[in-house]
Design a protein around this nucleic acid. Structure first.
Lengths: 118, 118
DNA sequence: CCCATATTTCCATTATTCATGAAATATGGA
DNA sequence: TCCATATTTCATGAATAATGGAAATATGGG
C-alpha cells in the first residue's frame, strides 16, 4: 500500500461519522447497507452521508453497488487489511518483539487457520 | 480504547509529516529522537515540527523527555498497539474468519511467543 | 550575568474540511 | 409521461488545521 493511499485511508477514518459508518459496514458484511439506511442509523442528512460515503469510497475503504433504487455500500475488508498491515509492519520493522504482544492479543479472537490443528 | 481517543489518534496519523515522524520514532525505539533532529530529518522548520509533535503527544502516540537542552521524543508502542487492536477488533467482531488472513500475514513477521513450539 | 543552543508559543495567513439547503440525477411503478 | 423514492451534486458559510516568521522560554557553559 502506498503512503498516499495510507494517508487517504487514515484521513477517511479520522472523522466521527465516517468511523461509525465504516464500523457499521464491517459489522454488516457481507450484506452491506443502503446509503439511506446508513444516514438514518447514524443520524445525519442524506446529502451529508453521501459526502462521507464518497470520502470513504475514494479512500478505497468501501465499495458500492446499485440495487434497484438503493445504492448498497460494503466495507472493503481487503483494503482495510492492507491498511492495518502497513501500519503494523512499521511497528514490527524487523524487530518482532515489538508487536508480538499485539498478535498475541488478536490470535485468541482470530486464530490463523494454518497454525490451528486441522 | 475510547472512541474519542481513537479519533484523535487517527487524526494525528492522518497527516503526511506526522505519519513520517511517527514511523521514524517507531524505527528509533527505544532511543527516541530529539525534536530538532526530527525537524531536520523530515525537512520542516522547528516550529512547525513542534506543533505536529504536540498533536501526536495529545493523541498519546508519543511521549517526550528532556535531555539537557534537547527534548527527546519516543513512540508510545503500547498506545499504538491499543489503536490497532481497537481497529482490528471491529474487523473481527465475533467472526474470526474475516481477519484471520491478516493475522496469517503478520505472524511470519511477529510470531506470538506462546503458540510457537519451544 | 551573558551568550548560544534547543524548543515552544504567539500570531497571521492560507488551505482544507464539514454541514446542509436546494437542485439535479437515477430508478421503478402506474 | 408523471410521480415518488433514493441518492448525489452544487453552492455557500462556518469551523478547523497547516504553515512559518518572530518572540518567548528553558538549559548549560563561561
Amino acid at each position: 500500500m502506498e503512503s498516499e493511499a495510507v494517508l487517504a485511508a487514515l484521513s477517511a477514518l479520522a472523522q466521527e461519522t465516517r468511523l461509525a459508518v465504516f464500523r457499521m459496514l464491517v459489522r454488516c458484511e457481507p450484506d452491506g447497507m443502503a446509503a439511506g439506511d446508513l444516514a438514518k442509523t447514524v443520524g445525519v442528512p442524506a446529502n451529508t452521508m453521501s459526502v462521507h460515503l464518497n470520502v470513504l469510497s475514494r479512500a478505497g475503504l468501501i465499495s458500492s453497488e446499485r440495487h434497484s433504487r438503493s445504492i448498497v455500500y460494503r466495507a472493503d475488508l481487503d483494503r482495510f487489511r492492507a491498511l492495518m498491515t502497513f501500519m503494523l509492519k512499521d511497528c514490527c520493522g524487523g524487530r518482532s518483539e515489538i508487536c508480538a504482544p499485539l498478535i498475541a492479543d488478536l490470535v485468541p479472537c482470530c486464530p490463523p487457520k494454518e497454525t490451528v490443528d486441522g
